[in-house]
Amino acid sequence: MSGLRIEERPDRLVVTLDRPEKRNAIDADLIAELHQVCAELEAHPRLLLLTGGAAGIFAGGADISQLRERGRTDALAAINSAAFARIRALPMPTVAAVDGPALGGGAELAYACDLRVCTARAVFGQPEVRLGILAGAGATHRLPALIGEGRAKELLFTGRRVDAAEALRIGLVNRVVDEPGELLTVAHAVLDEIALGSPLAVRLTKLAVDAPAAAHPHLDLVSQAVLFEDEEKHRRMTEFLERRRPR
């Protein structure tokens, strides 16, 4: 892959955006590569860590030179939004590790992940209205879900940027690290915590949380019924009880 660097680990993929000369701008080739990553994780479910590399930038947005030339049929093709929706729907949890700017489509890529960890110099923003378009790759519905309708509308209407401290305060990110060199360590630690759980329980929990309200409580009941019959559940509960048993 030319726009991504991939590191495979037994329980996760580490995917690094690798277009530093373009500020990791998201173009059609990068979107095609993200689809390949999704296909791999759909076929072989694992955790995902998505980061922007060591250049001090996560992603500066869509490639404006390409975006300027797109017409209505390109918009209806959902070029970016389809890839981001696929990331959002991956079977296992995803973490975005954000250092520096995550703007426009870059911010929407981060929103598509389940969790976000960032450095103190991270910046998020949706400048689309200032370019004559809207944030059409997920921000109009994912941002309100993350930070509330009022705050989301302000950011989408004005294009105002949010620094790391505000992002943490309003719930846009889960953790902030002071030093860029600590970012991946902390992001991996979050995934390590997730990996302590039963993979099937984690997968079904994500499915339940992401399901529409109408699916509850039926989805929860069916998922729990599956887990109650899982050998992993019996093993883990037996180990828990044996640890608590008086010696």
Rank of each mutant, 00 (worst) to 15 (best):
D18L: 10
L109H: 05
G3I: 06
L4Y: 09
R236Y: 14
D178A: 15
H44G: 06
R88M: 11
A39D: 12
A25K: 05
A211Q: 04
G148S: 06
I87E: 06
H35N: 04
R169L: 14
A167P: 00
E193R: 14
L196N: 09
N24P: 11
D230K: 08
R151A: 13
R244M: 15
A78F: 08
R70N: 04
T16W: 14
V98T: 00
V186E: 14
E149W: 02
A89P: 08
A208S: 06
V37F: 07
L221R: 12
A122D: 03
H216R: 06
T205D: 08
T94L: 10
L168D: 05
R203C: 07
G159N: 01
L131S: 10
T94Q: 01
G136S: 11
V222P: 02
E232T: 10
A215G: 01
S81Q: 03
H141C: 13
E231G: 03
R236H: 09
A167D: 01
A110E: 01
H188T: 15
H35S: 05
D192V: 10
H218P: 00
V129T: 07
L219P: 00
A164C: 08
L172C: 08
V98C: 00
G138S: 02
I87V: 13
E231R: 13
E242A: 11
G148R: 08
R68N: 06
D210E: 08
I57N: 02
E108F: 01
R247A: 06
D74M: 09
L191E: 10
